[in-house]
Design a protein around this nucleic acid. Structure first.
Lengths: 360, 360
DNA sequence: ATGAAAGCGCTAACAA
DNA sequence: TTGTTAGCGCTTTCAT
């Protein structure tokens, strides 16, 4: 794997050390250290000489040596499936922004959804001494997951680091982890209600992912809304095609071919909605005239879809900011706490009452 | 900033050290080190005992201590304006993928376009001992920029690290940096030709950013294509509104109000196109019937725009992969080299011949 | 095959 | 005010 003969990896040359700066300035290493760290009384003249020497040599401290003796750099790590998902990217940006504002370094790692890579990354962060690890995104909550996260939590905790679960459940309330997420059930309930109010009764949920907590919650909200409007349980029609544009496109195409007894689609997220929209157009149908479609997340380009998508706004960047803000505040009280962020519907042009001719 | 009384930052507790593992296994630290690093002859029995002890204690090596003595972890850093830009996100994903495949750690940093933060980040990477630093995205190439990058290049080089410039120019061919970018001029030339072939003569370029090398190259390609079709220099109409959806929307709205003597728009990138598309629709005009629009980059959602956008495909992920691949191969020959990646047009539905009645 | 010991570059007592 | 010294946790000779 990428180890041809021609590969020549950069070999770290010897860097300028504090000793060389000290020699050039004619002082001891300790003095240089004091000048550089700033918080020690050093006469202006010495100070100037040292700074001068450091600049001349283009000295930068060795972060590893510094971390070894001092507390190490304040570092927060975000772990997500992929940065190319607009939603995850926004969460990461929120974390980054909040971290940067406090002078913390933010490291972004992606797993591609592979638990193994997630585990490796968390391990790595433990080695590097991250003080805060934020795991983002829904997951399939099985025993393996619960065990894995419980392990992360204890391992991180015993090293004095904190774990935040964003949009995924804590395996156990007693575990030293913090969860911050959106109220998926409420959001799904609201947007389903929106569809129902427009007169839709045949609403299919596209993009279920059984076991995935985020999606399950949305499905739950969808079912509840249906029930509250007096519809029987059979009225719920959930297609477990998973997330992503391609999945949405595929499932929608299939659905259109087989069971056209619906007038609206509730897509599991906006990317699924994008795929569904395309599939509907490909089938020669129009949104919202023939079929109404709603999404979830309100990604930045949702208003550029055709038609502009009515969806549930989940303030992703705020989720990221909240994760670090909460984790850094009142740690004792916060541990084990569960924070729910609110969402709201953004009405655009993809919903309309069902056409008269179509099944109820 | 963010230092309320209630803040309680995680304080790194003492972690399990190699010494404790050694004691528990009844061997010396050296033996533990040998077992853990794997590449030393150690009898299976001792090996098992050590591994057992390490597992029991949930030991993870201190990366800083290890980096201090050994070469340090193989780490590549990508610096970009923001992760929420689909294009940048894809580049980052490419870097991440290629790095991960080689067992390198990838660190993503964002600057928000602020040279100061960029500088700080590069400095930081130097401290952390990154072996490869990749700067992504076009910039305004002024003296300050040239000086800054020349400094990065030399500083990184003297520490044995490599610098890759993605989509931005090297200040000087002799500088120890590698540049990998798309042939912006060719791409712009091609897509302008596409518009010209459809019969358009009044084509405005929306999203210029004078001094920005990537945009300047696109503008150059646009002008060349115009000239080759026998149009006078005055036929070029460049609006320097910069990039981003909001800028595109604003500029397009303005343009529509003031000078409607054009039939096509060449947006500086797909986000600008998104804004322009919206502005055109808001003005009650249709694309491509009334006005044709093309973009640049072919971001993942470009085909979901209304109408699906004809644009220039720049394989962003490949750019990221290429950056690390090239940097790690034949460093000597590569230094100072300039790699150009090809692009191609993706034809969708946003271009049509100009309407008969409109001024060419 | 394994242990003892020397340091990697830096900071933080402790002296002077 | 400044220098000297002792490690931080780990890898790596050099002995054994």
């Amino acid at each position: 794997m990428g180890n041809d003969m021609t590969e020549a990896e950069p070999t770290a040359k010897r860097r300028v050390t504090i000793r060389e700066v000290a020699e050039r300035a004619g002082v001891s290493m300790a003095t240089v250290s004091r000048v550089l760290s700033g918080n020690h009384p050093v006469p202006a003249s010495t100070r100037a000489r040292v700074l001068r020497a450091a600049r001349d040599l283009d000295y930068v401290a060795n972060a590893h040596a510094r971390a070894l003796v001092g507390g190490g750099r304040k570092m927060v790590a975000v772990v997500l499936r992929q940065v190319t998902s607009p939603f995850y990217a926004q969460v990461a940006e929120g974390v980054e922004a909040e971290a940067a504002a406090r002078g913390w370094l933010c490291l972004v790692g992606t797993t591609g959804g592979d638990p193994q890579r997630e585990l490796e990354f968390v391990q790595l962060m433990r080695e590097e001494g991250a003080r805060l690890v934020i795991l983002v995104g829904g997951v399939v909550e099985d025993d393996a997951y619960r065990e894995r996260v419980a392990h992360y939590a204890h391992a991180l905790d015993s090293a004095g680091a904190r774990l935040v679960l964003c949009g995924r459940p804590a395996p156990d309330p007693d575990i030293p982890a913090l969860v911050v997420e959106f109220d998926n059930e409420a959001g799904a309930h609201a947007i389903t209600g929106h569809l129902l109010s427009a007169g839709h009764r045949g609403i299919v949920f596209l993009g279920g992912l059984p076991g995935n907590t985020a999606l399950d919650a949305r499905v739950a909200g969808y079912r509840t809304a249906l029930a509250e409007h007096g519809l029987p349980p059979e009225a719920a029609h959930v297609i477990d095609c998973g997330l992503g544009r391609a999945a949405g496109h595929r499932a929608m195409t299939q659905l259109l071919k087989e069971t056209p007894d619906f007038t609206a689609v509730f897509a599991g997220d906006d990317m699924v909605a994008a795929g569904a929209l395309r599939a509907i157009a490909d089938a020669g149908l129009r949104v919202p005239d023939d079929i109404s479609v709603v999404g979830y997340n309100d990604i930045p380009l949702a208003e550029d879809f055709n038609p502009p998508l009515t969806t549930v706004r989940t303030p992703a960047e705020e989720l990221g900011r909240a994760a670090v803000r909460i984790a850094l505040r009142d740690p004792e009280h916060a541990a084990g706490a569960h924070h729910l962020l609110g969402t709201h519907i953004v009405v655009r042009d993809s919903v309309q009452p069902p056409p008269p001719g179509r099944p109820h």
